[in-house]
Nucleic acid binder design. Structure first.
Length: 460
DNA sequence: GCATGATCATGC
DNA sequence: GCATGATCATGC
């Protein structure tokens, strides 16, 4: 391997495919009496590529301009690979980046050309035995780079406004500002335009974007995606992707779903589960049945809301069910709930006018940092309830159970509710319920309160 | 009319 | 068979 030549390095890296770290560099690891602790990436750097891990501002392979990154994969039921998590890049130095332009930024200097090593993560398996599945380099296509540059600038803008402490992953599309390090006070940093300390964060590629990279490397054709932006579309402060999307919807404001459907020459089944998703796609010019590429890459949660005439959403907003055991195994920073709350959302508001549903407006939104902290209380209460085995409070005469789970009346933002086929559709409990002795309980999920959606999103 | 618990329908 | 989005039922 010639460390001055990127092709030579990439070819050497590709020899890892199908192997584990133990197979690829077991001898070296043994000689160094290495116990397999520490992360995958450090072992890879040290024992396969043979250099000491560093935290330089330069790429790992400086002369070749290549930054080495390894990242875990998970397998779907159909056997396809997906990223297990976001890809974390370099730390955002709040005190320096505000003086930089994108082209000379620390992010771009280090991460313009990536060498990616994806391995299959499996529970209960030593990291030395994870099988490396995909290896390739990655250059950002122009269409992605336009959005990444806007994301970078959005992050910079917040820092310049003295709002580094309010940064959130949901602020941006492909390039996020994810928390890095513990929640402890020591992981707080100074910021240039505010005396308030800000949580340490790193640039990261969103999980959805990493999935897109993976599909490209695995050369799975993505015919299932349709794009909002064409390749010629330039982006600027005036025409950013959010504005571009909203402009597409504005002509339909005040029109009924039925009318929009007719205007777009669609024939949809209004009872279909995908009815509103199809309308949204069609307004964006996406071919029927295809996923919205930019939204998928940005992990955007699209939520169609039906408002009552008094502006209150007809229903609370549900999230996927959680497993009780996983709630206890995962801390807040890595929790599914926090992950979802930090996402970017795209709300499409319809409102009932007699029997018709009229499009009111669309809105990109992400939860303010202080509200995420407030919602954390619900999660913490839930974890506590499960860890105490205090699930059922009372069984009514009719057999309905009352629980100790966090209720809507107890938190402004979120609550916990059943989300199951029926009461017998359950997940195991880590501790049996004290009152009933149950060892499994009806599937539940976190919900966003309808009143929160009305007050903090629709009416804002 | 709302909060809470329970369940349904569709589509993969 | 199950996830997801949607909706229903009951009681205060």
């Amino acid at each position: 391997m010639n460390i001055n030549d990127s092709n030579s390095i990439i070819e050497f890296a590709k020899l890892l495919k199908g192997n584990t770290l133990r197979e690829a560099c077991g001898k070296e690891i043994e000689e160094h009496n290495y116990l397999g602790k520490g992360n995958f990436g450090q072992i890879l750097e040290k024992f396969y590529f043979g250099y000491e891990p560093n935290s330089d501002s330069e790429p790992d392979f400086k002369e070749a301009g290549l930054e080495l990154k390894s990242s875990p994969l998970k397998t779907l039921k159909n056997g396809e690979y997906r990223s297990k998590e976001r890809l974390v890049l370099n730390i955002i130095n709040y005190l320096e980046v505000h003086e930089q332009e994108f082209e000379n930024s620390s992010f771009w200097k280090k991460n313009a050309h990536l060498l990616l090593v994806f391995y299959l993560h499996e529970k209960e398996v030593d990291l030395l035995d994870y099988v490396i599945k995909l290896v390739d380099d990655w250059n950002y296509p122009d269409e992605d780079l336009k959005i990444i540059k806007q994301d970078w600038e959005k992050i910079n803008q917040k820092i310049k406004e003295g709002k580094a402490h309010e940064l959130s992953e949901g602020d941006t599309f492909y390039l996020g500002a994810c928390t890095k390090g513990s929640t402890a006070l020591k992981s707080y940093r100074d910021q240039p335009f505010n005396t308030k300390k800000a949580k340490q964060r790193a640039y990261s590629l969103k999980q959805g974007y990493v999935n897109h990279i993976i599909a490209n490397i695995a050369s799975e054709e993505d015919a299932v995606y349709g794009k909002i932006l064409n390749n010629q579309q330039e982006l600027s402060a005036e025409v950013n992707i959010e504005k571009f999307v909203i402009e597409r919807f504005i002509p339909f404001y005040g029109k009924s779903a039925k009318a929009i459907e007719e205007e777009l020459l669609l024939k949809l089944n209004p009872k279909s589960k995908s009815y509103f998703a199809s309308l949204t796609s069609a307004i964006l010019g996406i071919e029927l049945g295809k996923k919205i590429e930019e939204f998928e890459k940005a992990d955007i949660q699209v939520k169609t809301i039906r408002l009552k005439e008094n502006d209150l959403p007809k229903e609370d907003i549900s999230f996927p069910t959680f497993k009780y055991t996983e709630l206890l195994e995962t801390d807040w920073e890595d929790s599914e709930f926090k992950n979802i709350l930090e996402s970017k959302f795209f709300f499409v508001f319809y409102q009932f006018q007699r029997t018709e549903l009229v499009l009111r407006k669309v809105q990109f939104w992400n939860m303010p940092f202080s509200d995420i902290e407030e919602a954390k209380v619900v999660w913490a209460r839930m974890v506590h309830t499960i860890s105490e085995g205090e699930i059922v409070k009372e069984i009514t005469d009719r057999g309905t159970r009352k629980t100790f789970f966090p209720k809507k009346s107890e938190n402004r933002i979120s609550h916990v509710r059943p989300h199951a086929q029926n009461a017998d559709d359950t997940y195991d409990l880590p501790f049996n319920d004290k009152l009933t002795g149950l060892h499994a309980y009806t599937k539940h999920s976190f919900w966003l309160n309808a009143s929160y959606v009305r007050d903090e999103i629709y009416l804002k």
